[in-house]
Design a protein around this nucleic acid. Structure first.
Lengths: 338, 338
DNA sequence: TTTAAGCGGTTAATCGGTTAAGTGGACTAT
DNA sequence: ATAGTCCACTTAACCGATTAACCGCTTAAA
C-alpha cells in the first residue's frame, strides 16, 4: 500500500505538501497540486485512516446496543440506524456498533470506546428514567446524544419523538369514535419515553372528562409476546376495555393476536392503536391504525446533532420530531356505541 | 487523557514494559507487573485505539449497506447484525457500518474502507449472481465473506442458509397437504439466493411428479408491497394457485394481505409459506408457516469466519446453515382436496 | 531604499502506541 | 576464574499521517 511518502517522492515534493493538497489546507501552486494529484492517482494512494485519526479525530460515531433480545434486533431500530448511517457517512463519519458482553456492561463499553478515541461521540439508545450514562459521559467530556424523552438530571441533548402529543392524539381519536374504556399498553416504566406517552394518554382522557382506570394501564415489555400477554390480562378484567393504545406497533401486533385468539374481531369488537408505523403495520389483519414516527429522520437528526457536539457547535437540548396518526382499520366505533 | 508515557513514568518503567504488561507479550516480573497495573488503575489509563491500530490492525469488521430502501432497514438484517456485533465484540472486534452515497458507490466504499485500514475485512450482504465485489476485493487481498449462496466466479467464502433444502421442504409440505398448483414468490433473480430457492422448489415439484408452471413463478421484489402486487398478479391467472411459497416472510405478509383483500381466507382458501421466521410471523393472522432461518447464528458465523480470514486461518468456502419448517396456520389442505 | 508582507514550499516535531535489538547483572557450566 | 545463558528491562526505530515553524524569494508599502 502506497503511503504519503511514496506520493511525495513521485511528485517531487515533501509529505507536507501532499497533505496540504489532499486536505485543502495550506497554499499550493496549481502546477504542484496537479503533480501531487497525478501521483495520487497513479499510485492509487489512500490515506491511512489510523495515522490520520491519531493526529486528528476518529470521525466515528458510536452505538452501543445489546444484540441479544435487545435493541439491535428491533425493526424500528434498524431504520433509525439506517438514517444515522446515511447522515453520518454523508458528513464524513462512520458508525461503529458494539455489543455489551458479560464482562463489559453497556456503560463501561461506552467509556472505553470514547476514551480510547475509537469514537468521537456516542448515541445512547433507550434513555432510561434515572440513566447514569449521560452524567458519566458528560463528566468525561464525551459528546453524546440520547434517544428518548427529557428525564430529570439528564445532562446531554435528547432527540426523540413527540410521544406526548402522539399519545394524546391517538387517545382522542379513540374517544371521538365513542370509546370510553381505553387501555394503555405501556413500555417499561424504566424508559424515559414511557412518561410522556402516559401523560398524553391521561391528558386526552381528562380533556374528555374521562377518568383514568388504573386496571386499564399495563406495563408490558416490548415483544409481541409481551403485548399478547398484556392483552390477555386486560381481557380478564371485569369490564374489559373497548380500545387499546399500545406504545409500540410490536406490542400492538401481540395484542391483536391475543384478541383474535379470544374470538374478538379487531376493529369491530376492540380497537387497537399502535405507535411506530413499521412497514408491516399497513399489512397486518386488520391494517393497524398507528402513530407514524419518522425513524430515518430521527437517525439523521441524531447524527447531525452529535456531529455538531463533536465539532463544538451547540445543539438544542431537546428535539422532538412530530408523529402523525395514520388511521387504518384496527380502530372503529365500539359495538355498543355503534 | 493519560498516555502510555504517563503510566510508564508513574510505574518507573519504560513504555515498552507497560506495553508488554498490557498485551501479555514479553517477560515481566510479578512486582513490576503489579506496579504497572497499579499505575494503569490509578490513572484510569485507556490505550489509544488509533495509535495501536497504526502499528497493528484496526480490529474492525466492515459492513457496507445502503440505508435507504435497503438492507439496513430490514428486520431480518437487524438480527444478522446483532449476531455479527456480538460475536465480533466477543472476539475483540467492532462493527463498522457505512452507507454508500451518490458520490461513492458500494464497491468504492468497500475499497476505501479496507485500503485506508479502517476495517480489516468486509461482510458483503446480498451477494448477487454476477457480483464483482468478491473479485475486486480478492485482487486487493482484502479479507471478505459474502452472505448468500454459491455463485459462479465468486472468489470469497460464503455463508448463508440452506435455502435449497428449505424451499424443497416447504414445497413438499404443501404437496403433502394436497396442493398441486403451488406458486413461487421469488426474490430478484439478481440475488444469489434466488437460485437455490428456486431449485429446491422445482426439485420438490418434480419429485412429486408435478410440472413447474411458469405462470406461477413470479419474481417479486422484497417489500410487503411487492409481495402484495405479486399475489394480485397470481390471483389474476386463469387457474390461480392454491398455495404460495414466498422467499421471505415480508413477501408472505404482503401476499396474505392481497389474499384477504380479494376475499380469500389464508390457510383455508390459499396456503402461504414464508421464509425467515421473523418474530412477527408467529403473530400475524393467521400465524405464518415459515422456514426458520437462524439469523443470529449466521451473524456469529460470519464474524468468526471473517476474523479467521483476517488472522490468516482458513475457512470453508461455503457454509450453509440449516433452516427448519415451522408449521403454523397459514397452510392447510386445499378446499377441493379437503 | 528599507521594511514588511506574501508566496510556495520544506523541515521536523508530534500523535501514542508496538516491537526488534541491545544491555547489565545474576547465575550456571566448564 | 571465565565464558555463556537467562532474565528483566530499556532504548530507539517505526507505523503514516498532520501541522507549527521556518526559509528564501518576490513584491508592495512607507
Amino acid at each position: 500500500m502506497a503511503t504519503i511518502k511514496d506520493v511525495a517522492r513521485r511528485a517531487q515534493v515533501s509529505t507536507a505538501t501532499v497533505s496540504y493538497v489532499l486536505n485543502g489546507t495550506g497554499v499550493v501552486s496549481d502546477t504542484t497540486r496537479e503533480r501531487v494529484l497525478a501521483a495520487v492517482a497513479e499510485l492509487g494512494y489512500q490515506p491511512n485512516y489510523s495515522a490520520r485519526a491519531l493526529r486528528t479525530r476518529s470521525h466515528t460515531l458510536g452505538v452501543v446496543a445489546p444484540g441479544i433480545a435487545g435493541r439491535l434486533a428491533d425493526p424500528a431500530t434498524a431504520e433509525i440506524l439506517a438514517g444515522l448511517s446515511e447522515a453520518a457517512t454523508a458528513a464524513g463519519y462512520c458508525l461503529l456498533i458494539a455489543a455489551p458482553t458479560d464482562s463489559e456492561a453497556e456503560g463501561e463499553l461506552d467509556l472505553r470506546l470514547a476514551r480510547s478515541g475509537r469514537v468521537d461521540g456516542l448515541v445512547l439508545f433507550d434513555l432510561r428514567v434515572a440513566d447514569e450514562r449521560p452524567a458519566v459521559l458528560a463528566e468525561a467530556r464525551i459528546p453524546a446524544i440520547a434517544i428518548g424523552a427529557p428525564a430529570t438530571g439528564v445532562t446531554c441533548p435528547i432527540a426523540g419523538f413527540d410521544l406526548r402529543a402522539g399519545a394524546e392524539q391517538a387517545t382522542q381519536h379513540l374517544i371521538r369514535l365513542g370509546h370510553r374504556r381505553i387501555a394503555l399498553l405501556a413500555t417499561s416504566s424504566d424508559l424515559s419515553i414511557s412518561e410522556p406517552f402516559y401523560a398524553g394518554y391521561v391528558a386526552a382522557l381528562h380533556a374528555a372528562g374521562l377518568r383514568r382506570d388504573a386496571t386499564l394501564v399495563i406495563e408490558a415489555g416490548s415483544s409481541e409476546d409481551d403485548g399478547m400477554a398484556a392483552m390477555q390480562e386486560l381481557l380478564a378484567v371485569r369490564t374489559p376495555p373497548t380500545a387499546v393504545l399500545a406504545a409500540t406497533d410490536t406490542l400492538a401486533f401481540g395484542a391483536m393476536h391475543a384478541l383474535r385468539d379470544s374470538g374478538k374481531v379487531v376493529g369491530q369488537d376492540v380497537s387497537v392503536v399502535g405507535c411506530d408505523d413499521l412497514p408491516l403495520a399497513a399489512h397486518t389483519y386488520p391494517p393497524l391504525t398507528t402513530l407514524r414516527a419518522p425513524r430515518r429522520e430521527l437517525g439523521a437528526t441524531l447524527a447531525r446533532h452529535l456531529i455538531s457536539l463533536i465539532e463544538r457547535r451547540t445543539v438544542p437540548p431537546v428535539t422532538l420530531l412530530p408523529v402523525r396518526l395514520i388511521v387504518r382499520h384496527s380502530t372503529a366505533a365500539p359495538r355498543a356505541a355503534g
